[in-house]
Amino acid sequence: MTNLKYYETMAQYNQWMNQKLYQICADIPDSKRKENLGAFFKSIHGTLNHLLYGDLAWMGRFLGKPFTITKTSEELYSDFEQLRQKREETDLQIIEWSKNLQPQWLEQPFKYTSNVDHQTRILPTWLLVTHMFNHQTHHRGQLTTLLSQFGYNPGITDLPWLPNNYF
């Protein structure tokens, strides 16, 4: 898959959605954000942490700067504002990175070791980059469910509603 605009669009979608969701989450008391709701990463805060973890892990691999935390459920930041700041920085990094992707790199095999099962795999780079964006969407879906259960409406989250100022 060498449609480079796809990756730029997904990076922008990632930032847009994260901004929307963090804005909602900022209004939720910390104790409620951290309440164990039985979700895969327990809480809203846990899910936000995991989303950041996934992006840091994949970007570390892609940039050749391994992310040293290997436990997928480890809390990166207990403080919401620190988590939010790192999220914003990471989103900007992903956008800039996506603008510089090259078809030759995307078509190459990519070797990595999973933090989940510790198995080493070699897969097409384009597939793993696509996975990073799919992973974001998957867990943001879990997050919007948790927010909805608390009565917060995240609004429309579909890609075609990405604001025009992103294009």
Score class of each variant (00 low, 15 high):
153 N>F: 01
77 Y>Q: 03
123 L>C: 04
159 L>P: 11
143 L>F: 07
11 A>F: 03
9 T>N: 12
141 G>C: 00
163 P>S: 03
153 N>S: 12
140 R>D: 05
11 A>C: 01
76 L>N: 04
133 F>E: 09
154 P>V: 08
92 L>F: 02
81 E>S: 14
109 P>W: 10
136 Q>H: 15
96 E>G: 09
127 L>D: 12
166 Y>T: 13
78 S>M: 13
62 F>Y: 05
114 S>R: 09
59 M>L: 15
54 G>L: 07
138 H>D: 06
141 G>Y: 10
136 Q>E: 10
7 Y>M: 04
152 Y>C: 00
62 F>Q: 05
98 S>G: 14
44 I>T: 07
67 F>T: 01
56 L>F: 02
125 T>R: 12
103 P>L: 05
124 P>R: 10
145 T>R: 04
39 A>P: 00
107 E>P: 03
102 Q>K: 14
50 H>E: 00
94 I>T: 12
131 H>F: 09
52 L>A: 08
133 F>W: 10
82 Q>L: 15
32 K>Y: 08
31 S>M: 11
139 H>R: 03
45 H>C: 01
131 H>W: 06
36 N>E: 12
7 Y>E: 13
121 R>K: 15
6 Y>M: 13
99 K>V: 02
70 T>L: 13
164 N>Y: 13
144 T>N: 04
36 N>P: 01
131 H>E: 12
43 S>G: 08
33 R>D: 04
69 I>A: 05
75 E>F: 00
40 F>N: 15
44 I>W: 04
14 N>A: 05
91 D>C: 10
21 L>V: 04
61 R>P: 05
145 T>N: 11
72 T>R: 00
35 E>F: 01
52 L>F: 01
112 Y>N: 03
3 N>C: 02
80 F>E: 09
70 T>M: 08
85 Q>E: 14
85 Q>R: 05
147 L>M: 14
36 N>T: 08
51 L>Q: 06
122 I>C: 09
75 E>V: 15
114 S>D: 11
63 L>A: 14
159 L>K: 01
132 M>C: 12
159 L>R: 05
143 L>D: 04
137 T>A: 03
143 L>R: 00
128 L>N: 14
29 P>K: 06
30 D>S: 14
117 D>P: 01
48 L>M: 10
133 F>R: 06
65 K>V: 04
